[in-house]
Amino acid sequence: METILSIHQLSKRYGRIQAVNQLSLEVGKGQVFGILGPNGSGKTTTLGMVLDLVQPDIGSFEWFGETPTKESRKRIGAVIETPNFFPYLSARKNLEVVAKIKDYDYSDIDRSLQLTGLYDRRNDKFKTYSFGMKQRLAVASAMLNQPEVMILDEPTNGLDPQGIAQVRELIKKIAREGITIILASHLLDEVQKICNHVAVLNKGNILFSGEVHEVLAVSDSFELKANDPAALKAAITEHPAFRSVTESDGILLAVFAELVTPGEINDYMQQKKITLFHLAERKRTLEQHFLELLKDDPS
C-alpha cells in the first residue's frame, strides 16, 4: 500500500506540557484516517507539525514518501480548527488567493463552491457568512483541484445538527472519490461514522490504532479462555460470524463481523463441547476507557 503520510517519533513540548509524545503513525492511500481524542490530546499540534505551522522538538515526518516541502503541502487540502479567510473578501476571491498560492488556475473554484452549496453566495463577503457556511467554505478551499489528501480538523465543531450532517455527507462524498482523508475529532461517533482507520490519542500518546471496526466497533469482540486453546481457536474459526482471532497470554481475542451476545457464544461453545473459563466482552472496557478520557474534558 502506498503511504501518504508517515510520522516518526514526533514530539512537541509547550512549557511543562508534553503536547505530543514520540508519536508515530502511518496513513495509507485511500484511507479515511481518524485521529480521535479529547481536546488537548495533541491532535491539532500533530496536524500543525505536519503542516509546518508548529516546529517539532524532535522527530520527523514524510509526505508522499518524501521530505516535506511547500510543494508537498500544495498537494494537501487542509482545514485547521477555524476557517481562516479574509473577512472583507468574497468567497470567490478568497478561493482565488488559495488557488494562486497552490499554482492552480481558477477553473475549479466554481465546482468546489457548488459542491459545498455556496455557489449562490460566492460574491458575498466572507464576514457575512454564517458559521456553517464559513466551515463549508473551508472545506471548499481544501478540496480545490482534487488534492491527494485532505486534512480536516474538527470539521463539525460548532455546527448545528443540519450543518453537521451536511459536512459529514460532504466528507463521505470526497472519500468515495478515492481522496485520502485525515480527520481529527473528539467525537467517537463521528470517527465511527466516517473513518475506516483510527488512532486514539490522549495527552500526546497514541493509546491504540488500527482499523475502526477492530478498535472502536468492538461490541463484537470477546476475550475467551478454555483449557484447550487449540480446540477453542478452531471452534472460533468455524463460527459463522468469525472475522479474526489473536492470542495473548493464553487469552484469545475474537472479533466477529456482526453483533454476537455473550450468551450466544456460550451456547455455541457448549455445542462444541468446550467449557469456557473466561468470557468477557471487550466492548465495555474500550468504550469505558474512551469515555474516561472524555470525562476529563470539559467540553
Binding site: D52, N84, V98
Partner: peptide, 21 residues
C-alpha cells in the same frame, strides 16, 4: 497584522506558501 489576527498566515502556509515566501 491582519494576516495574524485573521489567522490567514496559517492558511497561507498550510496551502503551500513557504515562510520565506
Amino acid at each position: 497584522t491582519n494576516e495574524f489576527t485573521n489567522k490567514t498566515v496559517r492558511q497561507n502556509i498550510v496551502n503551500g506558501m513557504s515562510r520565506s515566501e
